[in-house]
Simulated assay, not measured.
Amino acid sequence: MTADPHDLPRRRALSSLRGLALGDALGSQFFVPAHYPALQGRTLPPGTWQWTDDTEMACSVVAVLDSHGTIDQDALAASFAAHHDFDRGYGPGVNRMLRLIRQEGADWRTLAAEMFNGQGSWGNGAAMRVAPLGAWYAGEPEKAAEQAELSAYTTHQHREAVVGAMAVAAAAALAADPAGPGAPADLVTRVVALLPRSAVHAGLRRAVDMLDYDDVATVAAVLGNGRRTSAHDTVPFALWSAARGLGDYEGAFWTTARAGGDVDTTCAIVGGIIAAGAGGEPPRAWQERCEPLPEWLPGR
């Protein structure tokens, strides 16, 4: 019997995806200030934690990699549209775009390019879903960044959004490297070296200089915490937290969530990167509280 060449990449991507989904679902429980006391006390919320659009879109990324072995942009846009659930918390622009693709057969290229008066979206949506792609290309950060760029363009065509996705994918590829990710500063520095000049690039350079800071509030004040939902207000902080938290999913989650802002997205990015690496599996009791991945996802 011929071995499946996608078996190991698939398993790595699914591990990252489960970490992403848990970070997204649990992070979304702390999205409003009224829940901050529980956050500061590291008190887990009751019930089953439901994931958001971050996870739903990440599932499509993994499904396309599983079926094509690479990012096929048309297949990815079609999957986004086919599985789009309005109630998962999508932004209005992406809601409209995916509805038009599904119901009217509109071209994703035109719709994505037209967003924000032709500038394209610079939101964090392309970055929030892409860590499993990086895990798929474990140890190949250049390849991961290249494929992340393709995946971003299906919905986000602004330079910052694209570079943000490239950064997250490269970080996950390094975290998943069988040879080890290296020291936190090495990981972030290697990511920076792969990126074109941009606000995300500049933010990550600042993140390298702040890796020895323990005051999360100060770091978030400098790097951002996703409150503006832009890639450059989200990705530098998320990679700062992920690089410091490799091998410690629980600790990385609480550190990330304490910064506030777009908590489900920052925790999804960090969770996906951490779970891609050795020793980064989330606590089993937490996983049991998270909504299962959708039935349409291969290998879930």
Rank of each mutant, 00 (worst) to 15 (best):
P236Q: 06
C267D: 07
A259M: 06
V270Q: 02
S230V: 11
A220M: 07
R284A: 15
A259K: 04
G247L: 14
A220R: 03
L211R: 01
G272F: 00
G245L: 14
R227T: 13
G279H: 06
G245S: 12
G245E: 12
N225G: 05
D248S: 12
G251A: 05
S241H: 06
H232G: 02
R289H: 02
D214Y: 11
R289K: 09
V270G: 02
T234L: 13
E250F: 02
G279Y: 06
Y249E: 01
V216D: 08
G226F: 08
E288H: 06
S230I: 08
S230E: 09
R258M: 04
V222E: 15
F237K: 05
A238M: 10
R205S: 10
A243H: 10
D262T: 09
P236W: 05
F237P: 00
R258K: 07
V208E: 04
V270D: 01
A252G: 02
G226Y: 05
G251V: 08
G245K: 06
D212W: 12
E281G: 11
G251Q: 05
V208G: 00
T266V: 15
T265C: 11
L246R: 15
R258N: 03
S230L: 15
F237D: 01
D215P: 10
V263A: 08
V208K: 01
A259H: 06
E288F: 00
Q287W: 01
D248T: 08
R228I: 10
L246W: 13
A220C: 06
V222C: 13
A221Y: 09
R258S: 15
T255H: 10
A252V: 01
V235S: 02
A276I: 00
W286V: 00
T265W: 08
P292K: 12
